[in-house]
Design a protein around this nucleic acid. Sequence first.
DNA 1: GTCTGGTATTCGGTATACCAGATACCTTGG
DNA 2: CCAAGGTATCTGGTATACCGAATACCAGAC
Lengths: 218, 218
Amino acid sequence: MTDTLGDAHQSLADLVYVQLRERIIEGEYSAGQRLVERELADSMGVSRIPVREAMQRLEREGFLAVQARRGAVVADFGPEEAEHFFAVRESLEALAASLAARHATPAGVRGLERLLARTRKAAEAGRLRETVSLNADFHREIVELSGNPLLRDMMAPLDGRLRRLFRLTSDVDTSLPMCTEHQQLLDAIKARDPETAAALARHHVAGTRAFARQALGG
Amino acid sequence: MTDTLGDAHQSLADLVYVQLRERIIEGEYSAGQRLVERELADSMGVSRIPVREAMQRLEREGFLAVQARRGAVVADFGPEEAEHFFAVRESLEALAASLAARHATPAGVRGLERLLARTRKAAEAGRLRETVSLNADFHREIVELSGNPLLRDMMAPLDGRLRRLFRLTSDVDTSLPMCTEHQQLLDAIKARDPETAAALARHHVAGTRAFARQALGG
DNA sequence: GTCTGGTATTCGGTATACCAGATACCTTGG
DNA sequence: CCAAGGTATCTGGTATACCGAATACCAGAC
């Protein structure tokens, strides 16, 4: 029963969740497509319960839209949703940066420096996949250093949406400028300057937003 | 089977969710208390499935903390959690106010004015319960007018936490000043001044935060 | 008396089965 | 040919039952 999912150390619901989310992010399921509990359960070789729980999580995280008793469809994520997404993201990233500037420990700052160095190396070597992933790690780490678990929990689900947005548009050219911006942000955090850190984070997200807007043909 | 819950027009999971959330907010369950699926299911006369789904929602909204396979306990919500809460709330309220200042329709503004008038009336009449509820409505409406559904979905779960925080500390004295601040915020929205609106929202939340800090003896 | 091993019990995770609301298609009468 | 009603079916909601992991408790040995 775990044949299609590999040996389960986590719950089946978790595995189904990850699997479905990945399919949505990767565009394997297109927006508007219906997802039927029984179908998915059968195809994955599990019962409906884990599928159901996974779908409820996905709904709350904005990947699915449920309609009354008609089941769930994959949520749209076009230019409009992207705008909403970036507006929220900008505010929360700014908050995270500001809090990190206040609360980051020296060890935390060193961690960020290491991450940034690795990212730069990956970007220069043209290892795109790794660069994107390390960039995400950098942001996650800042959120972690903010010391606000609620903020972390609220931002975590947004990562998936970002990945969904950028599943195609992974452009090498943006990697090195991004490293520069990350460096500036890191400097502000190291200098314990919350205002500057917040402003830089805002600007950074705004840049991504503009890029997305253009990439989406908005 | 719906004996204890009344005739269900919504799903049992929804009803159980509301019921449990209310018990937590009202302090009927104290922080740290274990909630056992089977017990709750039996006592409410439903099966474990709706209870389970309700608990998963409550966990994601921060009311419960689940431990590995040991089940869920009611989450702490002391001074520390309150600080984290207000930090996030401040950022999101500011964003909502700023967006509302940009996007609010005349009809929307009129709706806010009506709400505020009713709130003032209730506050002057000393109808505390109603005042608190109307204040919450005012904030919700601003979020609505922001035109950002993602922001709405992210803020909605925070309302419950706020209620949990203030379940005792409902002080009449704060109602009228709060109306003044709401009036200022409304004016900024009406004037289509996002920066001022955001600043006022921040200040307003900061006031609530200070009040909570004091009330919690922090 | 204490430590260790095993066993009983608790409780979450999952599967199966049943039920009810909703939809879509088909039939029948005008 | 079209409309209205009914029926088959699809699908989500819920109940029940089983399983296995984790814990707590007890017994026996040192």
